[in-house]
Design a protein around this nucleic acid. Sequence first.
DNA 1: ATTTTTTCTGCGGGATCCCGCAATGTCTCA
DNA 2: TGAGACATTGCGGGATCCCGCAGAAAAAAT
Lengths: 245, 245
Amino acid sequence: MKVLIIEDDPLHRSYLNEAIRAALPECNGVLEAENGGTGERLARDWKSAHIVMDLQMGQRNGIEAARTIWKERPETRILFWSNYSDEAYVRGVSRIVPAGAVYGYVLKSASDDRLKLALRSIFIESQCVIDREVRGMQQKSLGNTNGFTEAEYEILVDIALGLTDRAIAQRRNLSVRSVQNRLQQLYVKLGVYQPAGSQDDDSRFNLRARAVAVAFLRKLLNHNALERAEADLSAWLVRQPHNRA
Amino acid sequence: MKVLIIEDDPLHRSYLNEAIRAALPECNGVLEAENGGTGERLARDWKSAHIVMDLQMGQRNGIEAARTIWKERPETRILFWSNYSDEAYVRGVSRIVPAGAVYGYVLKSASDDRLKLALRSIFIESQCVIDREVRGMQQKSLGNTNGFTEAEYEILVDIALGLTDRAIAQRRNLSVRSVQNRLQQLYVKLGVYQPAGSQDDDSRFNLRARAVAVAFLRKLLNHNALERAEADLSAWLVRQPHNRA
DNA sequence: ATTTTTTCTGCGGGATCCCGCAATGTCTCA
DNA sequence: TGAGACATTGCGGGATCCCGCAGAAAAAAT
């Protein structure tokens, strides 16, 4: 068995290396990559089916890398080892995991033993391991009470990118009014609203901008999610017919 | 001499501890804190004048901690040891460093030697040490060509928080029109604009929201900056007279 | 198959935003 | 002191956003 490490922090990388050798004596080869790009390449060349990776890397972040790796070899087993359990990350991961794939998500704050146990569970016993905390986030996210629909999340991303109602309507094949409806739902769920008085009172929020702000504060969005969304958007833009008058 | 470490990652913490003992043999005491809050407390109780800290910690982030520490003892020497040279961090730090204070900013990606050298320079020779890359960011930020005025940055934060023009005007003691002027400057500098045609063409951006998006993408803003801004905002809100009709 | 619920859609209006035009105020520099 | 550069403010209008109302369409439940 061979294991590939994708992690940009040297300290964490060598720590992982040690942990893998200790937890998996049957492992006879550990390779390290320090960013998503070379990680993808090594995974391809090395045909390694066992990967431990960090999300949040400078170059080409983890989710991107995982997506392309899984696209080429859906049976690859990936253990995500991350600092955060932001909803944006959790959602990002569960969005790309192929049906039936074996994977894991453990936090860097977890104990030594937990990490090693996860390594064995995933790579030897083909069993998914999701950290308690992450799992909690996942359920809060999916359970629609206080959680966000795919549609709501989608429109949240769209306004975070700065699209107008009309642009969103085109992109999502909706009428402008429907877009506005969804926005309204979103505002309710995020708890943003006008403080009553309509014309004379003091400080008030721009709902659209405020929604993005609280989404960021609640870690529903983060830098990576925005970057991915931006990439998707520009891919869509070039595909669009450039309507000139 | 005693040194206080404020860093939430255990691996990095012990690495730092080692580096300090190696670089500063005259040091006779190293204390560790794993978040900003306890870091502040230890700095106060221990009267330590030498601190190495991470920005970006889960609890109470580094900039907050540094601010309160420097407020109590402006002569404290702080070495910021961070993963990133985001403009948001760099600006955040230079905003709070007291006049004449000795401090440093080195990236975690720097070599062992560079870190040790920085430790000696700051704690022994009373000399500021700013990583080349960070310095570059600082200058790009301050040199007004392609850099942002304090005013522009301020209004950027305000719209990122979701305030309306009127609210911003009140908060910053400006007329609504002036706020809009500044917004326009901001849009120009960020390179956001309407793609010409006014009524019929295809995808267009909501300038206000788009500005926030590109600011995030360019790392002019990040989560910490937003959190701090949000805290400032709510502090200002309670201080405001609640104008009822 | 019919009712119930949810979503999509158009219309319309008030509030907000974006911004050109122009007058005034402030600062600098010669 | 006066000229020029720049920020501030008001006015006005077109575009966009926010959202109530209500009918049409789709999905879910009985």
